[in-house]
């Protein structure tokens, strides 16, 4: 029986920097200063969180007014197992809270201690975060109470223009059966291609034939020698690079394959040419795993260049 397809974690993380514009900027500045501002639309309603544009007239909203740091729960839920990034790391309630003086409700967390304390209509007040920077999380959470907590003072006066939002997500990336076979062959130091039953072209790595939309089936061994069809010299440094610039990234048509793969060509870098013959340089066999990284790079073989006509159709 075939081994199950390979899978591995894929984590993505970035601290997004969001510029706020005039309305959200004033709202965030207010939070930092221990105030909550709502936007007043043409119909007189006060929206918290503020709207940037009037939903009826479509005009930009310019009037912001203070509302109270106390309010009423209009809907709620309870979570026993908070997820990463949520406001509290113990059981809490997410709730829609209409602040006194506002006509709309704000979504935030309520630190009620127990589900039984949550109810629609309950009175809550803001618990301010100790450190405030101008962010929705300057409100640490809400807590059951009818009385406002004393607004914490602030010494700052510069307006808040930006917020930073870290986003961290974890995925499991899953390969296909074909790709898994290819990767397992790589772990044994072999390169594997598969031939499309329709167009007869050999794909490395194996995949559904993109031209015919059918799985490729017939396995074809591929040599770890090939021809540079085209290339570029990377002179620019950027995040995540494995080599120091300058280095050569080439399209390499492996012998026996009908589609080139991208890879590094190292050695004689200044002299890399279209048509140059190259061979894979494998890492030490004991380090091989199910990854294309088993091949460190390609090196020139010194053979005569392949004639342009022999790889012209692969450009």
């Amino acid at each position: 029986m075939a081994a199950p397809p390979l899978s591995a974690p894929l984590d993505i993380a970035f601290d997004y920097t969001r510029s706020l514009g005039p309305v959200l900027g004033r709202f965030m500045t207010g939070l930092r200063d221990g105030r909550v501002l709502g936007s007043r639309t043409a119909d007189g309603r006060v929206h918290v969180p503020p709207l940037e544009y009037d939903p009826v007239t479509h005009a930009p909203v310019t009037e912001l007014v203070d509302v109270r740091p106390t309010g009423t729960v209009t809907s709620w839920t309870w979570t026993d197992r908070p997820l990463a990034g949520q406001p509290l790391d113990r059981p809490f309630g997410f709730a829609l809270i209409r602040l006194d003086g506002a006509d709309t409700a704000l979504l935030h967390a309520v630190d009620a201690g127990a589900r039984e304390r949550m109810h629609t209509g309950m009175r809550v007040r803001i618990r301010w975060a100790a450190e405030r920077v101008g962010h929705i999380r300057d409100i640490e959470c809400f807590e059951p109470s009818a009385e406002p907590a004393g607004p914490p003072g602030t010494g700052k006066s510069d307006p808040v223009m930006m917020i930073t939002t870290p986003i961290r997500l974890s995925y499991t990336h899953t390969t296909s059966a074909d790709e898994s076979r290819y990767l397992r062959a790589l772990a044994e130091g072999r390169l594997l291609g598969q031939r499309c039953p329709v167009c007869r072209k050999v794909y490395v790595p194996p995949r559904v034939c993109p031209a015919d939309g059918v799985p490729t089936e017939e396995e074809v061994p591929i040599r770890d020698h090939g021809t540079v069809t085209t290339f570029c010299v990377v002179n620019v440094p950027f995040a995540g690079q494995r080599l120091d610039p300058p280095y050569v990234v080439a399209q390499i048509l492996l012998d026996g394959a009908d589609i080139p793969i991208p890879h590094f060509v190292v050695g004689d870098a200044g002299d890399v040419r279209m048509g140059m013959r190259v061979a894979a340089v494998w890492r030490e066999p004991e380090s091989w795993t199910t990854t294309p990284e088993n091949i460190a790079h390609f090196r020139p073989t010194g053979e005569p260049d392949a004639p342009y006509e022999s790889f012209e159709e692969h450009l």
Binding site: L6, S7, A8, P9, L10, H173, T175, E179, L183, C232, V234, V236, F238, G240, Q241, R242, L243, V249, I261, P262, H263, F264, T290, T291, P292, E293, I295
Partner: peptide, 11 residues
Amino acid sequence: QPPFTAPIGAG
């Protein structure tokens, strides 16, 4: 960079 792909950073 998804797992199982060669880290051929070219930008």
